[in-house]
């Protein structure tokens, strides 16, 4: 991923995602809800991007489309040159399986599997995964590997979810309100984990939040409102999550 032989290739490799004029219309019977009204967006390799915006601004919708959970109504989304808006359902499954790591607001761990097994549930179906224990070490849960979700705190469960998302060595890590259900102190620990895997694995990371304080840890901050990207800011320096407070 680090540098190509030609300029063109290196540019394409740099932009993991390239979204152009993406629209999304939900047909709710008699009304049509325009969730995205033509979004242009890039996500570069190894980058940490924070998507900020109020509810209904379209940030979850664009994340779902990038992650292959939802389809755009119009426009193109290129993942490393491949248009995922045209991919079939089977191909999207394979795409999620190989390339995308998800972190949910409510963790969504499998309650019947231990922390280690929850991670293994993903590494078993991935092509070149790390060892499940290794992924848990990265999020600081080396000593909790054999606990079931019911035996873990919310922050610990979310870190297991992060370990599960990164264990496949994804090229993209998508996090939808990862700290939404957590208190500030626990939230910082979780963000530290995300920050660390972004740096160590160089996975292009997008974090959705409505909490502007979190924006400090990003390389770029994308503001969304009413289905549009309103502004894109480049942070001069990424702040450590430790220094964030809310």
């Amino acid at each position: 991923m680090a540098g190509g032989t030609s300029t063109l290739e290196s540019v394409v490799a740099e932009a993991v995602f390239s979204a152009r004029g993406v629209t999304k219309v939900y047909d709710m019977g008699e009304v049509q809800v325009h969730a995205l009204r033509g979004v242009d967006l890039e996500l570069f390799a190894g980058e940490m991007m924070v998507l900020l915006g109020p509810s209904g601004s379209g940030k979850s919708t664009i994340l779902n489309i990038l992650g292959g959970l939802d389809r755009a109504s119009g426009g193109t989304v290129l993942y490393r040159g491949l248009d995922i808006t045209k991919a079939r359902d089977k191909e999207l499954t394979q795409y999620r399986r190989r390339h995308v790591g998800f972190v949910f607001q409510f963790y969504n761990l499998i309650p019947s599997l231990t922390a280690l097994e929850n991670v293994a549930a993903v590494t078993e179906i991935a092509d070149n995964p790390m060892k499940p224990a290794e992924a848990l070490e990265m999020v600081g849960l080396g000593d909790r590997m054999h606990h079931f979700p019911s035996q873990l705190s919310g922050g610990q469960q979310q870190r297991v979810a992060i370990a599960r998302a990164i264990a496949k060595r994804p090229s993209v890590l998508l996090c939808d309100e990862p700290t939404g259900a957590l208190d500030s102190e626990t939230g910082v620990i979780v963000l530290e984990a995300i920050d660390r895997v972004n740096k160590e694995l160089r996975a292009a990371t997008a974090v959705i939040t409505h909490n502007a304080d979190i924006a400090g840890m990003a390389d770029r901050v994308v503001h969304m409102s009413n289905g549009h990207v309103t502004t894109v800011e480049q942070n001069e320096k990424r702040r450590s999550p430790k220094d964030l407070h809310w």
């Binding site: 499954t93 999620r96 399986r97 190989r98 995308v100 998800f102 179906i125 998302a165």
Partner: peptide, 16 residues
């Protein structure tokens, strides 16, 4: 359904 949908998001196929 929620547990199973999570697995689908994580890349499990319908069959799995």
């Amino acid at each position: 359904s929620r547990e199973l949908a999570s697995l689908r998001v994580l890349g499990y196929t319908r069959g799995e």
